[in-house]
């Protein structure tokens, strides 16, 4: 018997404030796979991901994490989550180490100090994202790309089997993207599954096992990343082909090559 898929989304519809946002979507993240969820702004990508990790309810269909319905899923340490536009900076200064330590919560008992294993896991995660020499610095001093790496380290600190990231590449500089590409390759080699929302795949393109494209809340493509760009679906790709013009919108101010 094979292990259940880390993420199994079947025929899921989600409405937000009465408005349908995701319609009958299917998506699977297999063990050790790297799945990219693509689509333009407002296509329902984040909504689908947030429902899958249990942050918002869904109306119909089924979502299972490691074979357990998401509502009953308790093995929280198996998921490393990196929210959209999350920032390592809050109202009070915190070191990178302190922020990453909160990624250990699902593994720590209700009360008590951090153990040696906790501290080692945190140091390892910070090392993996290439910020070991900054671990004791205030997170506020980091660039956007470095902060995103801190958020990913927090996701990894719990020793997850599935890393779920909502636009981890948004605003991330070239150097950080290269660090992440090496990191993700390492994770995939060790059997960790990755599910990520992205606009641009950039340096990660060659790592993607499967691309899933959402358009107006519906899955319009599931398959290899290359196949999606090359075949007739190219006109759906948010960054290829010409933009579709909405009725009533003039071409004034639109650059036409």
């Amino acid at each position: 018997m094979t292990a259940p898929d880390p993420v199994a989304i079947r025929d899921v519809s989600i409405a937000l404030a009465g408005r349908p946002v995701v319609r009958r979507a299917d998506l699977t993240v297999g063990t050790g796979a790297f799945v990219a969820l693509l689509g333009s702004n407002g296509s329902g990508k984040s909504t689908l991901m947030r429902a899958a990790v249990g942050l918002i309810p869904y109306q119909s269909g089924s979502i299972e994490l490691f074979g357990t319905p998401v509502a009953d899923f308790t093995e929280r340490q198996r998921i490393g989550y990196v929210p959209q536009k999350s920032s390592a900076v809050a109202g009070v200064p915190s070191t990178i180490r302190e922020v990453v330590m909160s990624g250990r919560l699902a593994r720590r008992p209700f009360i008590g100090l951090a153990t040696r294993a906790d501290r080692k896991a945190v140091d390892d995660a910070i090392e993996l994202v290439g910020l070991a020499d900054r671990a004791r610095d205030s997170a506020a001093l980091l660039s956007g790309g470095q902060q995103q790496r801190v958020m990913i380290a927090r996701g990894l600190a719990g020793g997850c089997d599935l890393l779920v990231m909502d636009e981890p590449l948004a605003g991330v500089d070239q150097h950080s993207q290269e660090v992440l590409a090496v990191l993700f390759q390492k994770l995939l080699d060790s059997g960790t599954s990755i599910w990520m929302i992205a606009h641009e795949l950039g340096t990660l393109r060659h790592l993607i096992d499967q691309a899933v494209v959402l358009q107006d809340g519906q899955v319009v493509y599931t398959g290899s990343e290359a196949g999606y760009v090359d075949d007739h679906h190219a006109d759906h790709h948010p960054h290829l082909g010409s933009p579709t013009r909405q009725p009533g919108v003039t071409t004034e101010g639109v650059w036409n090559p």
Partner: peptide, 22 residues
């Protein structure tokens, strides 16, 4: 002070804390 790890996580990033099962 006793619940500092949880309170810190909730104040730092609610969404991440919720997915962590807090």
């Amino acid at each position: 002070l006793g619940l500092a790890p949880q309170l810190f996580a909730v104040c730092q990033d609610e969404e991440h804390a919720r997915v962590s099962g807090v």
